[in-house]
Design a protein around this nucleic acid. Structure first.
Length: 431
RNA sequence: CGGGAUGUAGCGCAGCCUGGUUUAGCGCGCCUGCUUCGGGAGCAGGAGGUCGUGGGUUCGAAUCCCACCAUCCCGACCA
């Protein structure tokens, strides 16, 4: 991609409305644009990142045999009335009428839809267990959006749903999904914790959350300094504070309920959530299958969400420096950028760009007629992992420099060795 | 929804307190030309504004008053 022809505007200053790091950087790097409170568009560069994250999720989900599908965003109210959530979901559920005055909602989640789908598409135990998922827009009319893309009203979510014959079978799937999530979040370069949580309006017997550690996170977790104990900080959770008379919230320095060592309170951003739904939705929507004995049974369900757009912000919160974003290699919008520092090496830069591009690398060429400093700064702000620099070093020693964004190390190679070296670097970067 | 703040060019700001030399400025960015070229270059020229919206006070309002709207932050809330 030639940068001169790419739709991107970077800026030195972030709009006043942005307060947190990821929000500022996403605006400065030209990844997103706001249209209303909690309603964002993704510009080409941001969309590229979103697409990379999406493909990691798809790869890992497909790997374990989950099937991708797409449910409607606009949903008839009928099913919500059946499940009881038309009354219970509250104002977060955006309701409206079509021209025939029929009630509809903008989907904040898709349990009703998927259960209805299963009811019609799955008749026999022979198809079970089954996991389906989609990556799609959700709308929740939150009272307050915040932190750029961290908490929005419209957002992109991966939601998966499992259908099983029994709780025993669900147990196996539920654990499998945990493992899938661990692989996804690791590939996204995240430092996270898995914690038990309350089920909220989704309901069900149990739920677990993946929390990305970040100081500005909305959620608090407590973590034991010694043993494995980690839990979400919520009212009513199994904890006895040592300081009596306090309101029942533990504090850093209190004792672990398991091993009595000290615990620490940390903040984080919820990026993934697993729910053990059981028969909650299959019963209310009468979704059944025939078991081995020819007996009609309710599906035993689970659901598994990942906030895809929020994930971008979470990744940035853990991967940045003074210069800007440091995308993990797999997620970066481009693997490398070619930079010529002066017009006399422009031609060489073009050759290298074409060679690398035709060689299958995901590469950007900064062919703009600007000073080198601007190009370096933009590349760093946007977070491109590798810079291929053609300049003084090329004129003096006939070598091309490859500089890494994160470690800031440089290697120099001859022109005809660039492709080979880049392949190595990209390979090792992909883990 | 409670508390706090902000709204002036694409972005960052000044001007408002004390109404009138302000034709509403400055920096960045943008457009044209020339020069420059390894970490946000220089010179010259140029485009871009219903001062959030509506009402009021006044001879006169970006500036004072009222209402509304929008956005952000803290809280409540929250897959």
């Amino acid at each position: 991609m030639r940068l001169s022809q790419y739709l991107i505007t970077t800026s030195k200053e972030a709009p006043t409305e942005a307060k947190c790091i990821s929000h500022k950087l996403m605006l400065r790097a030209g990844l997103i644009m706001r249209f209303a409170a909690g309603v964002y568009s993704y510009l080409p560069l941001g969309y590229r990142v979103l697409a990379k994250v999406t493909s990691i999720i798809e790869e890992e989900m497909n790997q374990v045999g989950a099937h991708q599908l797409l449910l409607p965003f606009v949903q008839p109210a009928e099913l919500w009335k059946k499940s009881g959530r038309w009354e219970n979901y509250g104002e977060e559920l955006l309701r409206f009428k079509d021209r025939k005055k029929a009630d509809f909602v903008l989907g904040p989640t898709h349990e009703e839809m998927i259960t209805q789908l299963a009811k019609h598409q799955i008749n026999s135990y022979k198809r079970l267990p089954l996991v389906v998922y989609q990556i799609q827009t959700k709308f929740r009319d939150e009272p307050r959006a915040r932190g750029g893309v961290i908490r929005t009203r419209e957002f992109l979510m991966k939601d998966a749903y499992s259908f099983c014959q029994s709780e025993k079978e669900l147990m196996i799937i539920y654990e499998k999904m945990k493992q899938v999530y661990e692989r996804i979040f690791s590939r996204c370069g995240l430092n996270y914790r898995l914690v038990e949580a309350d089920t909220g309006p989704i309901g069900g017997k149990r739920s677990d959350e993946f929390i990305v550690l970040a100081p500005l996170g909305e959620d608090r977790i407590m973590e034991c300094e010694e043993c494995e104990y980690v839990a979400k900080l919520e009212p009513g959770r199994d904890f006895q504070p040592t300081v009596i008379g306090d309101i029942g919230f533990p504090a850093s320095g209190d004792r672990c309920p398991l091993c009595k060592s000290k615990i620490r309170i940390k903040r984080g951003i919820e990026v993934g959530h697993l729910f053990w739904l059981g028969e909650k939705y299959s019963r209310s929507l009468q979704a059944t299958f025939l078991d081995r004995m020819g007996k009609e049974k309710y599906f035993v369900m689970g659901c598994y969400g990942i906030g895809v757009s929020r994930l971008l912000a979470a990744i940035i919160e853990q991967n940045y420096d003074e210069e800007g974003i440091i995308w993990p290699k797999e997620i970066a919008p481009f693997q490398a950028v070619v930079i010529a520092t002066s017009p006399e090496v422009f031609k060489v830069a073009e050759e290298i760009y074409l060679q690398l591009k035709n060689g299958g690398l995901d590469i950007l060429w900064d062919d703009r007629d600007l000073n080198a400093g601007v190009k370096f700064n933009d590349a760093d702000l946007v977070g491109i992992p590798l810079k291929i620099i053609i300049g003084n070093t090329f004129l003096k020693e006939s070598r091309i420099e490859i500089k890494t964004r994160r470690e800031k190390t440089t290697v120099k190679v001859k022109k005809d060795a660039v492709f080979q070296k880049m392949k190595e670097l990209v390979q090792q970067n992909a883990k």
